[in-house]
Design a protein around this nucleic acid. Structure first.
Lengths: 300, 300
DNA sequence: CGAGATATACTCCAAATGAGTATTAAATGG
DNA sequence: CCATTTAATACTCATTTGGAGTATATCTCG
């Protein structure tokens, strides 16, 4: 029984960076990721999505990569007759999103995943989450040890280190434990803002992918303005990773990779000593886009 | 004009490992990758593909991951009316493929990509390829330097190091230069065995993904038999990477990661001193599946 | 038994990495 | 104008990792 699946749908995780907050473009009052049907007038999926996003936002998409393709049954929200294919993408835009005012809503990542931001230390809410998960892990006999182990691993408990890339694993553990609003929990117990259908799960996938990617591809520069200071760059990486970094080591890595060059100008905005302005060396984009270019992501 | 796209198609890059040769399952006399319509009776794409492969081959699929989703216009082989969505997967199977005899054909990767196997040094054919590419790069004025640079980078020329992960980049350079049979070249100038449509390109994507993956995930064990010697393991990694490794360093890395344990038994087959047999420690599968587990892939 | 082949163990050095500390340059406020 | 603040910049040090080379042990085969 081969059934034709109509209406392939594109779902975009569009990310921008505004003063230390990583943001995602949303629709429906922040409750959904932008999505739409694939316009077959375009020559490819990528081109179709690019055109669509630019028509919606006015911003060009600097970087675009496929995240994952779902069939509805993977997701469990539609009746079988309406089953669609959903292709999700991660897109990075440099432009500052306009503040509110009718346009698309750019929301802070961490309003959906407050437990993922460790820049100010382990947040309160992370303790609450892990407490509730610990209860869940200890509940029934079969598989208790395995649950405990998964929990320690995903959340960096009992001597294991926090790994900022495990965004999706953490979300799915919470989902499994029934801590996620989308699973039908009462609002009083919500952790983070919920989204429609499985959109928050897709966002988690995008965040995880981007956190992994900044370590070995210079994609951070797709999110930075043309000219920036080293501290701005560091703050940008920290915002994405949800961690603080060791400043001297960060600078060492950056300049020993020769990814950036001085513009000759300096800032005067910040209060202290003015910082040199740098720009990304577009000359190296192509090669570095493929080989290494590690950003140091480690606690300070 | 939102057009319904019928018949999502699944395409599989199924890989196995038999005595030092990485193999891919093919159909149509080795000219195509196995593919078929998505059976919506299954609960998800993955499950559908798993079931389909097992019915076709009798082998369970140990590991399965999505590679990429194409719309036909990305590929350019079908008339626009028949446009389909193709979802490609990378699958790893442990079983020894049965030798020929009616069943599916397991073909050596390197019959399609002979320039990708550097285990015996840079092969003759690689020189031929790079020679022809150099001519192409030097041809017309505009963009000459950029072509030359891409070439050096992709093929490790002029002081740049060979990077075994750039399988797709190399293939696309060759395609662009018109060295690929699928682009309509005369048979006398073919490099490697051609495949139908863009299947060789998809295979290149799969190889590249797997070569990248073995460096940080223990997927190699999905391809090895239950028990193996350290040299067998090394030969397996070498086969996938298309490179030879430094034996002492390989062993050091393997056992300092505690991925494997001795079975207590030894082989007697190989002529020299019998080797200890090891098995993968399934206990660590879950954690290592997510965090690091680096295999040393570097020349000896 | 010795030659060949393979397994296994150990050393050495260079580079990368994590962490800490010190110094310099400007802006600001009293 | 000087002291304080804020950040930029520079330097050191220990540890780990990674590449490469060498030595020894243990088997089979002729």
């Amino acid at each position: 029984m081969t059934e034709a699946l109509a209406h392939p749908e594109l779902i975009a995780v569009l990310t921008a960076l505004t003063d230390d907050a990583p943001r995602v473009m949303t629709v429906a009052m922040g409750k959904a990721l932008p999505s739409g049907p694939f316009e077959s007038a375009h020559s490819s999926l990528q081109a179709g999505l690019r055109a669509w996003v630019e028509s919606q936002t006015g911003h060009p998409v600097g970087y675009l990569e496929q995240l994952y393709t779902f069939a509805d049954r993977d997701r469990g929200f539609e009746p079988a007759e309406h089953r669609t294919i959903s292709i999700s993408y991660l897109g990075l835009v440099r432009e500052q999103p306009p503040p509110g005012s009718g346009g698309p809503l750019w929301k802070d990542w961490y309003s959906y995943f407050p437990w993922e931001d460790l820049r100010a230390g382990r947040p309160e809410i992370l303790e609450q989450v892990t407490d509730m998960l610990s209860q869940w892990a200890a509940s029934e006999r079969p598989g208790r040890a395995a649950r405990r182990h998964r929990l320690d691993f995903a959340f960096g408990l009992n001597g294991m280190a926090w790994n900022e890339e495990l965004v999706l694993q953490r979300y799915e553990l919470m989902y499994e434990a029934g801590l996620i609003a989308e699973a039908g929990l009462a609002p009083a117990f919500w952790f983070g803002r919920p989204m429609a259908a499985d959109h928050r799960r897709i966002l988690a996938t995008g965040i995880a992918r981007l956190r992994a990617k900044i370590k070995y591809r210079p994609v951070i520069f797709e999110l930075m303005p043309e000219c920036f200071t080293l501290l701005q760059l560091q703050k940008g990486v920290e915002a994405l990773a949800g961690l603080t970094l060791h400043k001297p080591n960060f600078r060492r890595q950056i300049d020993q990779q020769q990814l950036i060059e001085e513009t000759g100008e300096t800032t005067s905005g910040t209060g202290g000593r003015p910082a040199k302005l740098f720009r990304y060396r577009h000359a190296v984009r192509e090669e570095r886009a493929l080989s290494g270019s590690r950003l140091p992501v480690a606690r300070m």
